[in-house]
Design a protein around this nucleic acid. Structure first.
Length: 519
RNA sequence: CGCGGGAUGGAGAAGUCAGGUAUCUCGUCAGGCUCAUAACCUGAAGAUCGUAGGUUCAAAUCCUGCUCCCGCAACCA
């Protein structure tokens, strides 16, 4: 089983382009693994507890539960809109999740992995958090942004993180494929060096925060939001058995892939989560891989609410279509790196690569078949070097596509498809089917050429399907082979189109996006 | 000496780990084709690969120094 998850989104505001990117990336990877014939379980969801949600709900004058329900609906309707299809949906307010978190806490507490300790420090009332020396300004004082700061003493529960960090250091040392891409590993290892000896505070007193999961062994506290949220990756696949959840052992069979943003690698996933799994008995062979993606910036700067440069994916989908949005989100960024969000590039990439190159190839090829051979596709006569070169291009680029997708490098996989499409367009120009049609003796040759083009379109439709499932189905419909959508990668052999297959007059699958002259 | 990422033709990127004549898309210029979604194809111009040194027969790639840009309080993938 290929078990894939994303970070669960914090329900403290509307989804933006970054949320959409992560889920589309995960959806594409999940669909690709299905296409490769694997069994896949794709889990995503929302993180609903914690102080910030409680504060925002208060500000809006509703209960946290109501607030969270509203925001959650915005996320799930976006996923439906842009074709993100998951097998499991995680909401941390779910009682089944609470049961699992409580069970884990109880177990860790019973095994002395959790202890109670008093902590004395500087506390910001406005931000409702303890401050450290890092929060001091150049003058060594806590700045005005913290409001009133007082020194208080408070008891809390701690998880013995320090007992697991030596293991984690060794494990990361040995493992080259736990943190992907590899360049992210250094940051994590560095953070670990500094973190030695520190345990993790996993509780918040109820007089400060009530919106969370109560500690099973002390009702005066709720669970720290990360210790609650991270457990979603196992709670929603039945770590605590539940008839309405999958069977845990059938899902977490080997190393799952967690797709997360670069901001939550350190310390949350890279340290806390791996240490938590280790503490509850997961072996090295079962440790997840963390696929860490970069950010979409605007003009080189981070997107943020305060800068007002947030991009709404729902709006983009409405304006430019789901195909253009999905394609752009995985085409114009290299997995792991940052990229600049630019609507003009979104339109450009759709128009050139999908409309002009692939869409137009499909259209011109099928049109010629309709006009010259009454829509009948047949292999025709003997092959020439041009034909074998085209077949070789398909073989080579399919291999390149697979290699890229296996490395989660979707943009490179799409480049491979494009290379074949370009090859096909060159093939058309070189062999000029409209000329072949003029002579009776070249009719056999004409059939071969048109067959090669139709066959290529069929292959491309399948290869494109993880990224653009709807468009792939439309392409399959154009070549009148609806069964294409059921094919697996291993079925992609030359000869998808049977001899004598009939097609009809095509219509554009990717109509060009025309930008209105406004603004 | 806080940590990490980055600097490659006009724009955006790949290539850097495993050194060997600089790649792709867009844009610009000039041609061609007419099957097709004013789409397609061909050719050209344009890069001292941030900078100064070093290693090497050979450096965008390895080593050292320096400069500049972006993240690391909050909102936040």
């Amino acid at each position: 089983m290929f078990f894939l998850t994303t970070a669960i989104d914090y329900t403290n505001g509307s989804p933006h382009i970054g949320h959409a990117y992560e889920k589309v990336l995960a959806d594409v990877i999940a669909r690709y693994h299905r296409l490769a014939g694997e069994e896949v379980y794709f889990l995503t969801g929302v993180d609903q507890h914690g102080q910030k949600v409680q504060q925002t709900a208060e500000k809006e004058g509703v209960s946290p539960a109501e607030y969270v329900a509203t925001v959650t609906a915005r996320f799930s309707s976006l996923w439906e809109k842009i074709g993100v299809e998951y097998d499991g949906w995680a909401e941390t307010v779910d009682p089944r999740h609470k049961t699992c978190v409580s069970a884990i806490l109880t177990d860790l507490h019973a095994r002395d992995q959790i202890y109670k300790k008093s902590y004395k420090g500087f506390y910001s009332v406005r931000q409702e958090q303890f401050l450290t020396d890092r929060d001091r300004n150049e003058a060594g004082e806590f700045g005005a942004e913290w409001g009133e700061v007082t020194e208080i003493e408070e008891e809390n529960y701690y998880f013995k993180l320090s007992e697991h960090t030596p293991w984690l250091r060794d494990f990361l040392e040995k493992s080259d494929d736990t943190i992907l891409p590899a360049f992210r590993k250094a940051e994590l290892v560095n953070a670990l060096e500094k973190n030695t000896g520190a345990d993790l505070c996993i509780s918040r007193p109820k007089d400060r925060l009530t919106w969370g999961i109560a500690l099973p062994f002390d009702d005066d506290f709720v669970t720290y939001v990360w210790f609650d949220a991270l457990i979603n990756y196992i709670s929603f696949i039945g770590y605590s058995p539940d008839p309405t959840l999958p069977e845990f052992e059938s899902i977490w069979t080997n190393r799952p892939v967690h797709i997360i943003g670069k901001d939550i690698l350190v310390p949350a996933h890279g340290i806390y989560w791996l240490a938590m799994l280790h503490a509850i008995g997961f072996t090295d062979e079962k440790m997840p891989q963390l696929l860490v993606h970069g950010w979409w910036n605007r003009s080189g700067e981070k997107m943020s609410k305060s800068l007002g440069n947030i991009v709404d994916p729902m709006e983009l989908a409405d304006t430019f279509g789901v195909d253009a949005l999905r394609y752009y989100l995985v085409r114009d960024i290299h997995t792991g790196k940052d990229s600049n969000f630019d609507v003009e590039r979104l339109v450009m990439l759709f128009n050139t690569e999908l409309a002009n190159e692939l869409g137009n190839l499909c259209n011109r090829a099928l049109n010629m078949s309709v006009r010259y051979t009454e829509g009948v596709i047949s292999p025709g006569g003997p092959l020439t070097p041009d034909d074998t070169a085209l077949q070789q291009s398909l073989i080579d680029n399919t291999a390149a596509y697979r290699k890229a997708m296996d490395n989660h490098e979707v943009s490179m996989a799409l480049e491979a498809i494009n290379r074949h499409v370009v090859h096909c367009n060159q093939y058309v120009d070189r062999l000029k089917p409209w000329e072949l049609n003029k002579n009776l003796e070249s009719k056999g040759r004409l059939a071969t050429v048109l067959h090669h083009l139709a066959e290529s379109v069929a292959h491309c439709a399948v290869l494109l399907s993880p990224v653009l499932p709807d468009a792939a189905a439309k392409l399959a419909d154009q070549v009148k082979l609806p069964k294409l959508t059921e094919l697996k990668l291993e079925d992609l052999k030359w000869g998808l189109i049977p001899d004598g297959h009939e097609i009809v007059k095509p219509s554009p699958v990717f109509p060009r996006i025309e930008i209105k002259a406004e603004e």
